[in-house]
């Protein structure tokens, strides 16, 4: 791509002057803008993610106390070769995103068979990898001190023997 230098004189006009917006043309545009801004403000102040795309912009909108802890969800798996591996919770790996599981953790705890789908997807998406026999959904807890990591532990959340 190159940058064009503005010419000193415009080329001769063809087809008359550019159209101006009519009063109605301005009105609906102003109305749409105002409506979208209003819904966005509503979504931001009292809404939830359910209002997508007008919901609050909650990415990283939570605070972690300086001496708090950082929890992250990991999928560990025993394989047919007898090893234990960490399986990335990504669409290309198990057909779902980590945040999607985190968002539905209570359902996974209540019904571990929901993990079966991940093993099936993994077999399809990563056919060259050893087959997974048991899945462990694990929460890794990192303890903070003055906003910096200072210790690590794990909590096993859900176990599922692959069928």
């Amino acid at each position: 791509m190159t940058i064009l230098r503005p010419r000193s004189r415009p080329p001769a006009e063809r087809g008359g002057p550019p159209a101006k917006l009519t009063r109605a043309g301005r009105s609906w545009r102003a109305g749409v803008t105002a409506a979208v801004v209003a819904v966005l403000l509503y979504g931001t102040v009292v809404g939830t993610d359910d209002l997508f795309p007008f919901g609050p912009m909650v990415q990283f909108a939570f605070s972690v106390p300086p001496d708090g802890e950082i929890r992250s969800l990991h999928l560990e798996a025993d394989t047919v070769t007898g090893t234990r591996v960490e399986v990335p919770i990504e669409p290309w790996s198990v057909g779902t995103r980590r945040a999607e599981i985190e968002g539905q953790m209570t359902r996974y705890r209540r019904d571990p068979s929901m993990l079966q789908r991940l093993a099936v997807a993994h077999g399809r998406l990563r056919p060259a990898h050893p087959r997974l026999t048991t899945l462990h959904l694990v929460t890794r807890v990192i303890k903070l001190r003055d906003r910096r990591p200072a210790g690590e532990s794990e909590i096993e959340e859900v176990v599922w023997r692959v069928r």
Partner: peptide, 22 residues
């Protein structure tokens, strides 16, 4: 609006917390 959301959910603790480390 994401600045607003940070304070709505994170409170004024947000800038002094450990969200980036998280």
């Amino acid at each position: 609006l994401s600045a607003y959301a940070k304070i709505r959910w994170g409170g004024w603790e947000w800038p002094n917390g450990a969200t980036f480390q998280w």
